[in-house]
Write a protein that binds this DNA or RNA. Sequence first.
DNA 1: CCGCAGAGTAAAAATCGTGTAAAGGCCACT
DNA 2: AGTGGCCTTTACACGATTTTTACTCTGCGG
Lengths: 229, 229
Amino acid sequence: MSESPKPLVLLVDDEPQIRRLLTVALEANGYRVVTAASGQEGLSLAAHHRPAIVVLDLGLPDVPGQEVLRRLREWSNVPVVILSVQDDETGKVAALDGGADDYVTKPFNTAELLARLRVAMRHAVRQDEESVFQTGALVVDLANRRVTLKGQEVSLTVTEYNLFRLLVRHAGKVVTHRQLLREVWGPAAEEQTHYLRVYVGHLRDKLEANPSEPSLILTEQGVGYRLKS
Amino acid sequence: MSESPKPLVLLVDDEPQIRRLLTVALEANGYRVVTAASGQEGLSLAAHHRPAIVVLDLGLPDVPGQEVLRRLREWSNVPVVILSVQDDETGKVAALDGGADDYVTKPFNTAELLARLRVAMRHAVRQDEESVFQTGALVVDLANRRVTLKGQEVSLTVTEYNLFRLLVRHAGKVVTHRQLLREVWGPAAEEQTHYLRVYVGHLRDKLEANPSEPSLILTEQGVGYRLKS
DNA sequence: CCGCAGAGTAAAAATCGTGTAAAGGCCACT
DNA sequence: AGTGGCCTTTACACGATTTTTACTCTGCGG
């Protein structure tokens, strides 16, 4: 369990006084801090700085916080603690199920928030996750939803991209049919393996040098698919 | 990534109406539940049942909840969600730093508690130990369903892998014909010993240095097979 | 020496999984 | 209303896998 001495916190909140208060509290407790005042800025800083943890306010002026979380989770498993004025219960459940690691309601007690950040950090399995994946001539920029092949941008439809993203995030490992179907088409579609046949076909058409002899998206008969790592 | 279908929740709370309410809610959401009314009972049930998650009330009649948590953490990393009437902030911080994974204040919203339990379970799955078995030049990575021989990946069909995994799990011990057949082909096939002869043959072809003189998958005449450990 | 039982081998037959193409439906845009 | 893009659904052919069958080998006891 090796830690860089001072973990970096990304603080996304549009209220300047909250940013100031928390920056001081966090820095006094051995963190480094970068702040963002909007969702867009938060996402771009997250991709750029690779924080050890994110504190995210839900009430942002531009992108809804829920959406920021969703976008972030497309490529990162960084712990996210939600901060919100809304004590709205369905929002809490949605955020927690959407991949948030904790949810703290404003006004909050600073000592408690810090303790909850320590819990979230404890849970994190420090996995070096790259937001850019590369193999051969293929480059996938997960933070920006861009796929390029030999420098040429490849345009993927929403479903194609969602499926491909899942394979990329588990590059080298077998991803089972059920897992792919559950995450791309939802739990109700777990049995619809024909979706996979069709869409894996599309991806191979767009990405493989020779689609009829796949070297990138490999079939694991009876189990699932695996992306060459 | 092995999943048991219904995770077991240990619910430690001295108030019967809370136990009833939560038992109903949890069972309706696909959990199995065991309940304890005291700290002592909770600790003993935790040791005995190995729950997938613990919901622990802090205000117990015998042992202080904080102490229950400490004793539990001496031997277990099971996720613990604290439930408490005290909105006392220093108590929260102490519990979270004492190894609790979340802290919910009574009265609580059931949907939120359930969402927080899902978060805690999500965290626990990540740190599942990677079970890699190795003997000689053969490496079996059960978590990733990969078998390599002298660094070369060996591809096994679904049935071959299921059979081999069973032998690997009991490496060094004899696994009987009936047991192998029951677990791989189902209880109805317990008598079909010819399946084993065929598939053990396949595995030896793929994995043994000299398939006609097995040194890896050994025959125990009239009983079963054994994997060299 | 023969016959038998348990085990291994080989290959045919049956079944299942996969890739592919194409048709129909839905939606957004014009 | 028409068009284009995408998602869903269906049908079929092919290859891989599983199941079934038949045969061989070996060791043991009559």
